[in-house]
Design a protein around this nucleic acid. Sequence first.
DNA 1: CACCTTTATGTTATATTATTACATATGTAA
DNA 2: TTACATATGTAATAATATAACATAAAGGTG
Lengths: 137, 137
Amino acid sequence: MSSTHTHSKKSQSLTKNQKIVLNLLQNSGEALKAYSILDSLKKEGLKSPLQIYRALDKLVELGKIHKIESRNSFIVCNNSNCASNTVFAICERCGNVKEIKNSDLSEGVKELVKKNRMNVTRYNLEFFVLCKSCKTN
Amino acid sequence: MSSTHTHSKKSQSLTKNQKIVLNLLQNSGEALKAYSILDSLKKEGLKSPLQIYRALDKLVELGKIHKIESRNSFIVCNNSNCASNTVFAICERCGNVKEIKNSDLSEGVKELVKKNRMNVTRYNLEFFVLCKSCKTN
DNA sequence: CACCTTTATGTTATATTATTACATATGTAA
DNA sequence: TTACATATGTAATAATATAACATAAAGGTG
Ligand SMILES: [Zn+2]
Ligand SMILES: [Zn+2]
Ligand SMILES: [Zn+2]
Ligand SMILES: [Zn+2]
């Protein structure tokens, strides 16, 4: 035993199911739905929706993934740290989702927040677009 | 007979069910869920989810109402014409939803769109806030 | 270590949200 | 009239998400 140096770093504290779900989302690179994730993970032993939703909830809470609200799907965070302020471009034709850095938006958002005296915790912006691939077809 | 003067104005072309649903949303003034709308309209003779969803779909399409994606609820449009570009403040504590004019946002959005070379059809921005009433309690 | 608390897991059942499929009716235009 | 598009009614079912409860693992305190 000796060095059972409990690597209890906060940063790698994902549990088994959380790791499995995160891996799938990372490897897929696209937005996935909960029940499609469940299907894909039957072989890993996960067999109930709740196992998926619990992992997803936690990963969202940790900022590792985001939920695409208008599509009930989930995608890995593309940025280092969104602080849960998210911007997506969602293709209306093929459903492709791409996360966008929100830096350019901050000024406009700040003004809007100030003018409306809002106590903003976070925000989520969804652009509905025709993606490059769909535009050329 | 005689004057069956078909009042076929495009502007008032809502159908019976569409009018009933829109009226309820207008009178309530708050965001409502489809099945709660259904419950409220049992007395008007609407009895299946599909009757509600069809009316809601059409009203959204016409821009009369909006869907709050993160809450699966619907609210009357608060502006004259959003062109389906919507901004909401959603209280995380009580669920209250308020539509916000998006004029101040346009510059930041335009830049973001330009920088990412997006072909944007429309957008939806959801601010998660602590509303005034909840802040004081 | 023993003890307690918190967090995660497994499992079943159920709630909530939304659509498919098909038959009928109504509105609009040539 | 005929044709076509749009709206309605109704039943069944699909897709998304949570409640409830039992058990297990992880973490902190003394
Ligand atoms: Zn992100
Ligand atoms: Zn596309
Ligand atoms: Zn509006
Ligand atoms: Zn509130």
